[in-house]
């Protein structure tokens, strides 16, 4: 589903995957390079365990005919464990290092853009994902969810907008703040005032 998936040498063995970018990332030499995807089987196994605990603690009403409510989830949990083991084995045997997005040959871009993308792809980073940016976006959403009822829609949504914009690399905090407040106010007017959706007004309450 990713633009790169058709080009990435997904099944090449060992360290061949990053041959185009020698020393592309700081972690390239470590065992974890290309194996951080083990987190996927880990999540799946964790979720299967959640189902398993749920099945074991489930209180089925008396007189329920088999197959009862635990039957289908049990099938899923078993499948989950089997698939997570197989996935883990596949990651251990053939790591899948991530590739920074560069343009494929068929894409219609100027040489300059192409060169810029390739240069950017060669910059070494410790991790493939820019966790600081993700933290801004996810943290902003967490704050939004936690503060929505207290601050009210306008302020909380503006906060969310501002944090995500900042995470996306915007460098003008004050301008962002203006845009954020405008967007959240327009949404409030359109959906809460005009369409009658239930959005909390919070500490600005009474104004509308």
């Amino acid at each position: 589903m990713n633009p790169n998936s058709t080009h990435a040498p997904a099944r090449t063995a060992g360290g061949e995957g990053h041959d185009g970018h020698p020393g592309a990332r700081g972690a390239a030499g470590s065992w974890w390079h290309g194996r951080s995807g083990l987190v996927v089987p880990l999540i799946l196994a964790g979720f299967s365990t959640y189902l398993l605990v749920g099945i074991l603690t489930m209180r089925v009403p008396e007189g329920t005919d088999p197959p009862g409510p635990a039957f289908f989830p049990a099938l899923i949990a078993i499948a989950g464990y089997v698939i997570s083991v197989l996935l883990a084995v596949s990651y251990l045997r053939s790591p899948e290092p991530a590739h920074p997005a560069t343009y494929a040959e068929h894409e219609d871009v100027s040489d300059e853009e192409r060169r810029a993308a390739e240069e950017a792809a060669r910059v070494p980073y410790r991790t493939f994902s820019d966790w600081r940016c993700v933290a801004w976006a996810a943290g902003g959403f967490f704050a939004f969810a936690a503060l929505l009822t207290v601050l009210g829609w306008i302020l909380a949504a503006a906060l969310l907008f501002w944090c995500v914009a900042r995470g996306m690399g915007s460098t003008r905090p004050l301008m962002d703040l203006t845009v954020a407040l405008t967007v959240s106010s327009i949404v409030y007017l359109a959906f809460a005032v005009a369409l009658g959706l239930n959005l909390p007004s919070g500490i600005l309450g009474g104004g509308f």
Binding site: L148, T149, F161, V164, A165, M168, S170, V183, V187
Partner: peptide, 24 residues
């Protein structure tokens, strides 16, 4: 601009879900 586009999408995600459930 990207930052505002994704900021706006994040806000609408929150709106869509909160509007259907009214639950934090």
């Amino acid at each position: 601009p990207r930052p505002y586009l994704y900021g706006g999408i994040a806000v609408f995600c929150g709106l869509g879900v909160y509007a259907t459930s009214s639950s934090t």
